[in-house]
Design a protein around this nucleic acid. Structure first.
Lengths: 332, 332
DNA sequence: TTGTATGCGTTATCAC
DNA sequence: GTGATAACGCATACAA
């Protein structure tokens, strides 16, 4: 790889001049500029990113701490981020937190240590105190999918309460009253808020919620299957379910189908996220559209701006989910 | 961030000694080592990765050029890579090629220019000549999902011919003869080889294949829907279909379902890839399991080894797909 | 308008 | 065993 020195020597100028040509803002005589540019082309000069980062004490990279790349929800998130970074021509460094506090910490440490200044992090498990410490230390850290009042302007989040409330209302409006809430089994804000939304909707409709109406399972396909088994064993005293996400709903549907429980004839179902294949399930899944790709783009842009020192007005980065009615809900 | 100098001053030694302590191979008196280590802890010293890469003229990063992060197949691939890099504690840099030659080039250039030496690239569209040029210039470039004889030891690929043949045979063995092949509409090796496997199986079974038995569409959900529409318009003269991938099969099933064509009663279907949700479709999809996650891990490991100068014996990195029988195929 | 000198944080090569 | 010192490739204040 040719360096600035090579180019400089060949063009009969100093390295400083080559530098000026590259960052074409400073005064440099058109003739010399031409000479340097020719030399650069001849050598196929590419500026060494490492050295550049070294001298500027800052590199052009965005770190993404995701949950798990092999999950339709996080895939869409990653795509949104990658889209933004590719267009901005900044390097995207990825690592995953695996929904475990320790791994989230290790991942964040890795990103920071590797020189990522702009970071978009999905941190469902890390405690608030730790996040704030990281945030204080890393000014261009943006938290996605979680709301922390102290650093609200660096969060991009979904209004989970309203979303879960809307999902539940959809069932209530179709005449359902015995509605169970199938949710996650780990203590994350998403869970808390969505259960809250569910309770709120039920409360307003005057439907009392017994403790065993809330069922906690892992938020993946298998968790859904587990929940369905539990419900079946308990006699299936419900006519409808709101679920934590679509993947879980798919698991539920699979087990129900296996046991000849028909959706939506025997039981209605509302999912969450609107992942790509929600409409390929049978029946197609009524769900809450989660605008995660848009949120991801916003988060990435925000992180990049923060890192560039662009402060701007404190924006509101809260997003709303939207109900997508499909075929998994039926009037009672 | 504290530097080596800070630590050195505080410990009353030179930076060189601190360096020796960090790369704890050289002789250094236990007492001084202790002093340095204490100072490091006090300052919470972290070695600057950029400077390290600069001095060593090589960084610990692996670049991944993927197709499209928001696709179940590539998600699984990304997961395999990320898993390997996280365990090896190397940075993972991602960018996507979007199945366009130009974007693949731009992505690869970006990765190389950003200092990635070890690279795993999915390059379905780039012409062979260009790939070989890149390969010559980047000794730790590994090509995934494509076989190039000249650099076979740096390729990790699937035996697409046998896989498509097995898929087709599954249908033939169930008595089908009028079998269409729904494939991709872009000139990539996967397409060529899978069509070849289809033809081979048909040939051996003595079934002539008319040109219009091979239908080319985009290899996504929409392409599947398009193919189904085409088939329906032509009168659906087939009893079975082999498809290019599961996502496409899902699209086909959706359109068929909409038009009251029953799978597998009216028509049988075999997918390809065995993506996570193949078993959540209705009916569950019979498909070829593509061990892409394992292949991704192999590719990442290989790239890292090549970069570390580990040559090893030339290994055979060809993988085979395996038939997963589910409910979308029925005897004629 | 251009060149010189210095620094960024490490590592490596010498001396001592 | 340990400490100067010179790279690595680029950016930049200061001279000229």
């Amino acid at each position: 790889m040719a360096t600035m020195k090579d180019v400089a020597r060949h063009a009969g100028v100093s390295a400083a001049t080559v530098c000026r040509v590259i960052n074409n803002n400073v005064y440099v005589k058109p003739v010399t500029r031409e000479r340097v540019e020719t030399a650069m082309r001849e050598f196929n000069y590419q500026r060494n990113v490492t050295a550049h980062a070294m001298a500027k004490r800052s590199g052009k990279t965005l770190g993404l701490l995701t949950g798990n790349l092999d999950d339709p929800f996080f895939s869409r998130m990653a795509r949104g981020i990658e889209d933004t970074t590719r267009k901005a021509r900044v390097q995207l460094v990825v690592c995953s937190g695996g929904h475990r506090a320790e791994q989230e910490k290790a991942g964040l440490d890795l990103l920071i240590n590797q020189g990522c200044e702009a970071i978009v992090a999905h941190l469902p498990r890390m405690n608030e105190e730790d996040i704030l410490r990281y945030a204080a230390h890393t000014p261009a850290l943006v938290v996605i999918n979680r709301y922390l009042p102290v650093i609200a302007n660096r969060c991009v989040w979904l209004d989970n309460v309203s979303a879960a409330q809307a999902a539940t209302n959809q069932l209530i409006q179709h005449g359902h009253r015995k509605i169970a809430c199938i949710t996650a089994d780990i203590p994350i804000d998403d869970r808390t808020h969505r259960v809250e939304g569910y309770r709120k909707a039920m409360d307003i409709a005057g439907i009392p919620v017994a403790d065993d109406w809330i069922i906690s399972v892992p938020f993946n396909e298998h968790g859904g299957e587990l929940a369905a088994e539990k419900l079946l064993q308990a006699g299936l005293n419900f006519t409808a379910l709101v679920t934590f996400n679509d993947v879980m709903a798919a698991g539920i549907m699979r087990t129900f189908h296996y046991h000849q429980v028909r959706v939506p004839d025997d039981i209605s179902l509302v999912g969450f996220d609107d992942i790509a294949w929600a409409k390929y399930l049978h029946p197609t899944l009524t769900t809450m559209h989660n605008p995660i790709e848009k949120m991801a783009r916003r988060a990435a842009t925000l992180a990049l701006q923060l890192n560039a020192g662009i402060v701007g007005l404190p924006q509101h980065n809260g997003y709303c989910a939207e109900l997508i009615p499909r075929a998994s809900v039926k009037p009672l």
